[in-house]
């Protein structure tokens, strides 16, 4: 049986898996999701694909307690606006952290997670979420 929405998800795979947006070399602004035209420079803008480093801080967040059916096993969970180090913000779920431990300004990094699945036999959608940066033994910086 054909499944609806497959093509729509497939088109977003590159940007959802690796946070690929774009960068306007004219005004040095980064965009995510990628823009077709730089809204600042218009026709003078020059956009290039850019893979974000995946590091940032929590700008603001909300704890979701009344959850959609697909997210019942994860309640309560945190949705945040993450300000990436390159300056752009995106909305993402925060994982690997209890809701009460999340705070504004918390340092986070992108991780690869299951976003949703279309039922037991359907397509599984993967993409980015964010988690607190973790200890790395021997890391010098």
């Amino acid at each position: 049986m054909a499944e609806h929405g497959v093509a729509q998800i497939w088109r977003k795979i590159k940007s959802m898996y690796n946070i690929i947006g774009n960068h306007c070399t004219t005004c040095n602004t980064y965009y995510f999701p990628p823009r077709p035209v730089c809204p600042k420079c218009r026709r003078k803008g020059h956009l290039e694909d850019y893979k974000f480093k995946g590091l940032g801080t929590i700008h603001t967040f909300a704890i979701v307690r009344q959850v959609p059916e697909d997210f019942k096993t994860q309640a309560p969970y945190v949705m945040a606006q993450v300000e990436l180090d390159e300056g752009t913000r995106l909305t993402a779920q925060i994982v690997n952290c209890d809701a009460e431990d999340v705070s504004i300004g918390m340092r986070v990094r992108a991780c690869f997670r299951k976003i949703t699945e279309f039922g037991h036999g359907g397509l599984i959608v993967y993409g980015y979420k964010f988690e607190p940066t973790m200890k790395v033994t021997g890391h010098k910086r």
Binding site: T73, N96, K114, I115, I124, Y126
Partner: peptide
């Protein structure tokens, strides 16, 4: 695994 983790993640 967490509820959003599997072998792919």
């Amino acid at each position: 695994p967490g509820p959003d983790e599997d072998v792919a993640t």
